[in-house]
Amino acid sequence: MILFQWVPLAGNVIAFQEYRPYLPLTGQTWVGFENFAFIVDPTFLNALENTLVLTLIQSVLVFPIPLALALVLNSLAGEQLKRLLQSIFYLPHFLSWVIVVALFQQMLGNAGILNTFLLQNDLGAVQIVGEPDLFRVLLTSQVIWKSAGWGTIIFLAAISRIDQEQYEAAAVDGAGSWRRMWHITLPSLKGLFILLFILQLGESLTVGFEQIILQQGAVGREASEVIDTWVYNNGVIDQNWGLAAAAGLFKSVIGVCLVIGANKLAHVFGERGVYER
């Protein structure tokens, strides 16, 4: 554990070296911040832009869907039906990205269900998979398909902890179900929202490496490159170790800063955040 987590962390020193694999770590030449020149590299800036846009789309769209699903599930009266639906919705979470990407290809790809259906009805095929302009939409729908159901777990648990007497009192006072949701359920979940948001921020520069690398060939780098795939393509594929490590380090440091900053902000607003101070 220490070997594979903390030794690599120390290994980040190669970000400041001109790394040559055949020399021992102590025999490398120090180059200071030379490797960080990638910051002005247009391919890196493109990757950064893609990363940020995807993060933005995913946090805006992916957040409310599990919540909506959880609210609907919670409002169902039948326990057995609820449990059955939950098991169906959680299932995709356990599939790997390879499987999810393959399933999406078979559904939306050129020979997939959708196009077979369209062709059989003389409607003309649509190209969704492998279309650079639609790549972000495709990625986002894959994320929703895979993780929206799983995301409801935490919301359902939080909803079930809300004191039922509050609802009863509100109902007696004449609040309808929408008003009860708006004034009791959602405010009770505020702390959880902030917690999830902070955690999400820490991940904000990490958008689906596996998901994207699997589909990069079909749409090209311009549309699909994100920071992680840039690091992989430059480091492992092109053997620019120092450069790629510098970019990876840049990403980790920004991620940690975002988490700490957001947590500070949460404390300022009187919320607990991830850790207390």
């Binding site: 690599p8 290994g11 190669i14 690091v231 480091g235 492992v236 790629a244 940690v256």
Partner: peptide, 21 residues
């Protein structure tokens, strides 16, 4: 603390790769 830190910081692809190598 080492464990909690491991959740917060990820060392990155390249250093991991080099350690395995």
């Amino acid at each position: 603390l080492l464990l909690l830190g491991a959740i917060l910081f990820s060392p990155g692809i390249i250093p991991n790769y080099l350690v395995v190598k």
